[in-house]
Amino acid sequence: MVRGIEPKLEPKVSDFSKHMVSGQFDSLTPKSWNILLGNELAMQLGVSVGDKIIVIVPQLRATPFGSVPLVRSFHVTGIYSLGMHDYDANLALINMQDAEALRSLAGPTGIRLKLDNLWNAAPVAHELSDKLGDIYSVRTWMQDNANFFSAISMEKLVMGIILSLIVLVAVINLVSMLMMLVTDKQAEIAILRTLGTTPRSIMGMFMVQGVLVGLVGIGFGVGLGSLLSWQLPNIVDWIQDVFHVQFLSPDVYYISQVPSRLEWHDVLWVTVVTFAFSLLATLYPAWRASRTQPAQALRYE
């Protein structure tokens, strides 16, 4: 796809100028017939900065030799890389005036808007659609990338289920450890009971021990997980450079880098939920310990 843009206004709605691999973004001057290509598209065509390419427009024009498509030669003056396969492999940029001349248009055929809050795209699009009517088509970035975000939502759901199962296994391990501890300390519990320790105190002892184990695990997990999440892009890049592997193939996953952003409210939420699970996991073993009968526990001692 070839898109006509205004180089001076384009940085307000996109980041093409910040992702130039070679060449100059400002080279798209009017009537220069220059073109910018994505790095993957340039590789497919086997061209680089300074080469010429032929653009064929699927629009016929009448000539003495019959109807022929519109053909125009362009100079490749820049190559960009956004890290998204759909753009890097399928999009070329030219000056808007050149695009209008190429298609014999009197003006632009579309306007792109960039909002301060990208999540307001849907309500703004709905409002514009109501005001403009059916003559104009209004689309959002969510609609253009619906399949991609649907896949991400599904992966997020699956990851949530997997993480929940991991937490469940950890809770079961904590319960098992405390149950083994209660069984191993039957004699000591019985002695404490004979000395006057109340069942509530016995239960509190094992609950405190279980909570301490949970807090240690939460501390290590949150600390290590936050550190890895914070440095994940750098870690992935280092692994790819050292072992010459690529975790994300752009033509499969649409992106070539692993994005990571540490959300502290998510960290806090996970910490609170994990602590609650660890607290609940101590209840049954602690209750079993408080129900220990001194006579039965000391019978074979």
Results as ranks from 00 to 15, higher is better:
residue 190 A to S: 10
residue 96 M to H: 09
residue 277 F to L: 11
residue 7 P to M: 13
residue 179 M to K: 08
residue 245 V to R: 01
residue 145 N to E: 15
residue 73 S to E: 15
residue 55 V to M: 14
residue 107 G to M: 11
residue 286 A to D: 01
residue 147 N to F: 15
residue 240 Q to E: 15
residue 27 S to A: 12
residue 194 T to K: 10
residue 235 I to Q: 06
residue 192 L to F: 10
residue 282 T to E: 04
residue 284 Y to S: 06
residue 270 V to K: 04
residue 144 D to C: 03
residue 27 S to L: 03
residue 243 F to D: 09
residue 179 M to N: 13
residue 244 H to Q: 12
residue 57 V to C: 00
residue 96 M to F: 12
residue 88 D to H: 02
residue 245 V to F: 01
residue 265 H to P: 03
residue 138 V to I: 15
residue 202 I to A: 02
residue 158 V to I: 15
residue 91 L to T: 10
residue 27 S to Y: 02
residue 103 R to I: 13
residue 215 L to Y: 09
residue 52 K to V: 07
residue 172 I to A: 09
residue 281 A to N: 04
residue 64 P to C: 07
residue 126 H to N: 14
residue 7 P to T: 14
residue 161 I to W: 01
residue 181 L to P: 06
residue 29 T to E: 08
residue 275 F to S: 01
residue 154 M to R: 15
residue 264 W to P: 01
residue 259 P to N: 04
residue 295 A to Y: 02
residue 199 P to H: 08
residue 291 R to P: 08
residue 93 L to V: 01
residue 59 Q to M: 12
residue 37 L to C: 03
residue 225 G to L: 04
residue 210 G to M: 02
residue 162 I to D: 03
residue 85 H to E: 01
residue 178 L to T: 01
residue 279 L to Y: 10
residue 278 S to Y: 10
residue 141 W to P: 08
residue 126 H to P: 04
residue 5 I to W: 06
residue 25 F to M: 01
residue 150 S to V: 07
residue 214 G to I: 08
residue 60 L to C: 07
residue 98 D to F: 03
residue 237 D to H: 14
residue 249 S to K: 10
residue 189 I to Q: 09
residue 8 K to Y: 13
residue 145 N to T: 14
residue 280 L to A: 13
residue 207 M to F: 09
residue 124 V to I: 15
residue 111 I to L: 13
residue 284 Y to W: 13
residue 113 L to K: 08
residue 89 A to P: 00
residue 270 V to A: 13
residue 296 Q to N: 09
residue 80 Y to P: 01
residue 10 E to L: 13
residue 157 L to D: 12
residue 278 S to R: 03
residue 27 S to P: 02
residue 238 W to F: 14
residue 37 L to N: 02
residue 128 L to R: 14
residue 239 I to S: 05
residue 111 I to C: 04
residue 141 W to E: 03
residue 225 G to I: 03
residue 191 I to P: 11
residue 65 F to V: 12
residue 274 T to L: 14
residue 282 T to Y: 06
residue 84 M to A: 07
residue 283 L to G: 02
residue 77 T to M: 05
residue 62 A to N: 07
residue 129 S to F: 15
residue 25 F to W: 12
residue 68 V to E: 14
residue 233 P to R: 01
residue 199 P to W: 12
residue 255 I to T: 10
residue 107 G to E: 12
residue 122 A to G: 04
residue 286 A to Y: 06
residue 130 D to P: 00
residue 66 G to S: 06
residue 94 I to Q: 02
residue 41 L to F: 06
residue 222 V to C: 07
residue 92 A to S: 12
residue 25 F to Q: 02
residue 187 A to E: 12
residue 95 N to C: 00
residue 104 S to L: 13
residue 252 V to E: 05
residue 7 P to G: 10
residue 187 A to D: 09
residue 150 S to I: 11
residue 71 V to K: 12
residue 90 N to Y: 05
residue 150 S to P: 00
residue 60 L to G: 11
residue 132 L to F: 11
residue 121 A to W: 13
residue 2 V to H: 00
residue 58 P to R: 06
residue 86 D to A: 13
residue 192 L to A: 08
